[in-house]
Simulated scan of single mutants.
Amino acid sequence: MHKLLANQSSSVKVKGSFGYIAPEYSMGSAVSTEGDVYSFGVLIFEMFTSKRPTDDMFENGLDLHHFAKATLTD
């Protein structure tokens, strides 16, 4: 029976809200702790800025990464 289980495969689909799931998941990457950290970071970002990752301001090339980088000071 163990041998039978070893030959089986499974597929896992990532579920989540657009803007909160890690971008690499859309390219077929495996679920990871890093993806969870990304999602948590988006949540923290939303709490501090009152901006959702799907806000209308994130169009025409502006995304969370560039917005955060532009607003942080050295």
Rank of each mutant, 00 (worst) to 15 (best):
F58I: 06
K51V: 05
K51D: 09
G28P: 13
Y20K: 02
A6I: 04
V37R: 11
H2D: 15
A70L: 04
G61A: 09
T33W: 00
D74P: 04
F40Y: 07
D55Q: 12
T73K: 08
A22Y: 00
I21N: 01
L72K: 05
K69V: 06
S39M: 03
E34M: 13
S17M: 08
V14G: 04
K13F: 08
Y25D: 01
K3N: 08
F18I: 11
Y25V: 03
P53N: 08
V14E: 03
L43E: 01
V42M: 14
K69Q: 14
L4H: 15
Y20D: 03
G61H: 11
N7M: 07
H2T: 13
K3M: 10
T49A: 05
H66A: 14
F67N: 07
F48N: 12
T54Q: 04
F58T: 01
N60Q: 08
F58H: 05
T71Q: 12
V42C: 08
S10Y: 07
L72E: 12
Q8S: 05
P23H: 11
V31N: 14
L43P: 06
A22C: 14
Q8K: 06
M1H: 08
D36H: 04
K13G: 00
A6D: 07
A68W: 07
S50I: 12
L64D: 03
G35W: 10
F45Y: 06
Y20H: 02
A22M: 04
L43S: 14
E34A: 15
L64A: 00
K3Y: 08
L43I: 15
V42Y: 06
F48A: 08
A6Y: 00
P23F: 05
S32Y: 11
K69W: 05
S11T: 13
H65P: 03
E24G: 00
V42I: 12
G41A: 14
F40L: 07
F58V: 03
D56M: 11
G28V: 03
L72D: 00
S11W: 15
A22E: 14
L5S: 06
P23K: 08
D36F: 04
F48L: 14
T49F: 07
L43C: 06
L43G: 09
Y25A: 02
F18G: 00
F67S: 08
K3T: 09
L43W: 10
S32E: 11
K69D: 09
A30L: 04
V37I: 13
D74K: 09
L64N: 04
F48K: 04
F45M: 03
D74H: 12
G41E: 14
K69F: 04
S17P: 06
F67H: 10
A22W: 01
E59D: 15
I21M: 00
V12W: 11
L62Y: 03
G35M: 07
Y20R: 01
D55C: 05
S17T: 15
S11F: 15
L64P: 02
L72W: 00
T73Q: 06
F18M: 00
D36A: 07
